[in-house]
């Protein structure tokens, strides 16, 4: 406890660094996974291939991926870039599947009716399909954000300075509270990020909040969003997620 009180400044500082290291890969993975997942949804024969590749990517243990990247990227072994790229890859791996599922889950009749009304394909994407896919994509993003925050700590083993540094330092010097503080700070950070993304998701989907009478579709979409949160069930097909640690 005394250690924690004496080092509040350090913990706060590391939390900020940690947040930055987490946000970059999360944002990048959204930017990459949405087009990729959309592609997998649209192009039938690509779907299997894309999802298998990202699934395989996700099985690679994090420390192994981080150490394999320097020769591929030409970066120094002890560089934050390796950690960022590795986490970005995991994010893409997780989210691509969610995005593909999200677009699959948009009611085909709704898409057809938008087409019948005379939406151009581009406009239909931006104003109909993407908004309706948001709940499932948000659910996937929450999973990505939480696991990214937790995975950043592994970067401490390759010299990245973040909350994980409290683990390595605490182990070396035998200070239990230091490690506990690191764990708590990581979990808090993950939780806050999760809540923020959930709130953004709610703000983006006002229609999903109505208490309708015939809410079968809404219940179904909630069920799907729910499924994205359960690692075991998102893995219904050949590809399983859940490796990285």
């Amino acid at each position: 406890m005394t250690w924690i009180l004496a080092n509040l400044g350090l913990i706060g500082d590391l939390m900020l660094v940690h947040l930055r290291l987490s946000l970059i890969p999360v944002v990048v993975s959204i930017l990459v996974a949405v087009p990729l997942g959309r592609l997998a949804h649209r192009v039938g024969w690509l779907r299997g291939g894309v999802l298998s590749v990202v699934g395989l990517l996700y099985t690679i243990p994090s420390l192994a991926l981080i150490t394999l990247l320097p020769p591929l990227l030409g970066t120094p072994v002890l560089s934050d870039v390796n950690v960022l790229v590795a986490l970005g890859l995991y994010g893409v791996a997780l989210l691509t599947r969610s995005v593909a599922d999200a677009f699959d889950a948009v009611d085909a009749d709704v898409v057809r009716s938008a087409m019948a009304v005379g939406y151009t394909p581009l406009r239909r994407f931006w104003t109909v399909e993407l908004p309706l896919a948001v709940p499932v994509i948000v659910a996937g993003t929450r999973v990505v954000a939480v696991s990214t925050v937790s995975l950043v700590t592994v970067g401490a083993l390759v010299g990245s300075r973040n909350l994980g540094s409290l683990f390595t330092d605490g182990l070396q010097r035998g200070i239990v509270p230091e490690i506990v503080a690191g764990i708590v700070a990581t979990v808090v950070l993950a939780l806050v990020l999760d809540l923020v993304i959930a709130a953004v998701g709610r703000a983006l989907t006002p229609w999903a909040r109505v208490s309708g009478t015939s809410g079968a579709a809404r219940r179904a979409s909630r069920r799907r969003a729910h499924r994205a949160e359960v690692p075991g069930t998102a893995a219904e097909d050949a590809v399983t997620g859940g490796g990285a640690a």
Binding site: D109, V110, S113, M115, A116, V117, G118, P131
Partner: peptide, 28 residues
């Protein structure tokens, strides 16, 4: 696209856009 905008189409279950209000749906 232009053809569809001048032909009305009604399908089973309405095929309404779930994220738009009733009036927005009608005026699409």
């Amino acid at each position: 696209v232009r053809l569809r905008r001048r032909i009305g189409y009604v399908m089973q279950n309405g095929g309404l856009l779930p994220h738009r209000s009733v009036l927005d749906n009608i005026t699409t």
